[in-house]
Design a protein around this nucleic acid. Structure first.
Lengths: 128, 128
DNA sequence: TCAATGTTTTTAGGATCGTTGAAACATGGA
DNA sequence: TCCATGTTTCAACGATCCTAAAAACATTGA
């Protein structure tokens, strides 16, 4: 990810409704959610949710597909991981001691890593 | 990190000059840089850099200390790691397969982790 | 084709943000 | 104290963003 896209992603995530929507879609998984369902859960009007979804889509954080009458939105996990990589990148240019806190994140936020799944985060088990 | 602070941090990072300043300070390490030096490197006016540094400070991304005539700013690595943790948090609520790309980041972006320092990122060695 | 449902676009407004230059403030040395 | 240096605050303006409501568009079934 280059600086331009990082700026775009940060801008997209700096708005309350959009951040909520993205987290909603991240939790929803690859199946995604229909625009209407998102609007209902976020408690905003359809036109407003459409506006914010477009912003998220332009930032590359979500994708959309039409299924019959509904338009289904889902999170782009690759963009999220790219953003995290971007955030870690420059840390590595400084001395290792400086970025020790980030190393801790790497080792502790291991919810996604099979062999270290000992509830390092306060995340609850997967349901559904 | 809660949602409120995450929003504040995203807003702070969504501006080109501020993102550049933060990356500059991350690379500079705990020693930090004087406001004047930052202004010079970022090629913005002193008043402008002061404005942006205040925003970064309010978001908790930098701290300042006075040394004689200069005010030295340095990156708050804990806030950065907190942001990364926040970004990974919800990923874990979905199925593990969904967040595999993030797991890859964790294992590959290992520049900070001593035992896996094999240039997984395209980051160049530290110069200067 | 017509009506119903789901979503997007458009328009307009008010609010917030970023930049600039001048003035003010803080510090250290003569 | 006075001056030089380094930084911050202030006020004003233009640009951008967010929201709301109405209209337009797309899809499906009668």
């Amino acid at each position: 990810m280059d600086e331009r896209q990082a700026l775009s992603v940060f801008a997209a995530l700096s708005q309350e409704t959009r951040l909520r929507i993205l987290r909603m879609l991240v939790i929803a998984g690859r199946g995604g959610l229909a625009a209407g369902a998102i609007a209902e859960r976020a408690e905003v009007s359809p036109s407003n949710v459409s506006f914010h979804l477009k912003e998220l889509e332009q930032a590359g954080l979500v994708r959309s597909r039409r299924e019959s009458r509904s338009v289904i939105y889902s999170a782009e996990y690759d963009t999220l991981s790219g953003l995290i990589r971007f955030l870690m990148e420059d840390c590595c240019a400084a001395s290792p001691a400086v970025c020790a806190p980030l190393a801790d994140v790497v080792t502790q936020a291991a919810c996604c890593v099979p062999e270290a799944n000992d509830a390092a985060l306060s995340a609850q088990p997967v349901e559904s």
